[in-house]
């Protein structure tokens, strides 16, 4: 027995090496996230510490970085652009994805269900430039014709496109949330005479609420971060939108469109990186919140709700 415990044969080494490789893979996520943050932080630092006015950045809608005599860096219009497009996208995506998740999780069976799941995943794999193309060449003339708008590249167009883009991932996560609701709940409710719809409405959806909120938040995160499709479908005009038919410009699209034509290290360059930092913070917060919800609600609420269990089970 002792000898066996000490033997370092080939499989012992394979085991060790595999362990180290897997550990490196796990640590790399931390290294990358910290590295990226340091990088964009460093590039944006000069602007933040010198010419930066948080007030101007957050409250001024004037983004004129290339002006010769008086460049201004107000991101309000860009933030409003991203927010309005994402907001509309959620109005589109939440009913679609919730409906799809309920159908797949609670009604579809057997092969139909598997087929639908594969299709939803396929939908998530469509490149965003293709969605942008749909926005440009299909939605654009359609909006002009249906709403008699002068241009079809606007909040409405990019919101719908972004909603359709976000729906598949939201569907998948929402369906996971419904699947995590124990079947005994459904059985209990059905045995009490609840119809299938009552079971879903009164039991399954409330029980899966946290996961559904998380799905929506991840959709919002996706909307904030999406670049290409929004760049192509939003009209790309710096503008505080007052109606769905206004053209807007998103934070991401601004970075994508301007960074390549900016002198490295210039004030404009640094301002773009500051936009990047802002985006990073927003998506980080959203993902963090989504994670909190997936784990079962806000920590404060959980503690209050679980008090009896915690005291019985220290």
């Amino acid at each position: 027995m002792n000898a066996a415990a000490d033997r370092r044969d080939l499989s012992w080494w394979v085991d060790k090496v595999a362990q180290i490789l897997v550990l490196a893979g796990g640590l790399s996520a931390i290294v990358f996230i910290v590295g990226i943050f340091l990088f964009i932080g460093r590039e944006g630092a000069g602007f933040i510490f010198e010419g930066f006015s948080l007030r101007e950045f957050l409250l001024s809608p004037r983004w004129t970085p290339t002006s010769n005599h008086n460049p201004t860096f107000g991101a309000l219009a860009l933030i409003a652009g991203t927010a309005s497009v994402t907001g509309l996208a959620m109005v589109v995506a939440v009913p679609f994805s919730l409906g799809a998740a309920i159908y797949i999780g609670e009604f579809a069976t057997g092969r139909g269900r598997e087929t639908l799941k594969v299709l939803v995943e396929l939908l998530a794999a469509i490149p965003s430039v293709v969605w942008g193309f749909v926005g440009l060449s299909i939605m654009n003339p359609l909006i002009v014709r249906v709403f008699d708008a002068p241009v079809g590249l606007n909040v409405l167009n990019s919101g719908i496109i972004l909603g359709l883009m976000a729906a598949p991932i939201m569907t998948t996560i929402a369906e996971d949330a419904l699947k995590a609701v124990p079947d005994t709940y459904r059985e209990a409710a059905e045995a009490m005479g609840a119809t299938r719809w009552q079971v879903i409405l009164k039991v399954v959806l409330p029980a899966g609420r946290n996961g559904l909120v998380a799905a929506t938040l991840l959709g919002v995160g996706r909307g904030f971060g999406e670049t290409m499709a929004v760049l192509m479908a939003s009209g790309h005009a710096v503008n505080l939108p007052t109606s769905p038919f206004d053209a807007v410009r998103a934070l991401t699209a601004t970075i994508a469109a301007e960074l390549g034509e900016t002198a490295e290290g210039s004030e404009h360059w640094q301002a773009l990186f500051t936009l990047g930092i802002f985006l990073f913070l927003v998506t980080f917060t959203i993902n963090f919140l989504a994670d909190v919800f997936v784990r079962g609600g806000l920590p404060g609420r959980r503690r209050r709700g679980r008090r009896p269990v915690a005291s019985a089970n220290p």
């Binding site: 059985e187 009490m192 039991v203």
Partner: peptide
């Protein structure tokens, strides 16, 4: 009415 093997109160 039915009572199950494993107590299954609804999450309410």
């Amino acid at each position: 009415g039915m009572v199950f093997q494993r107590p299954n109160p609804l999450p309410l």
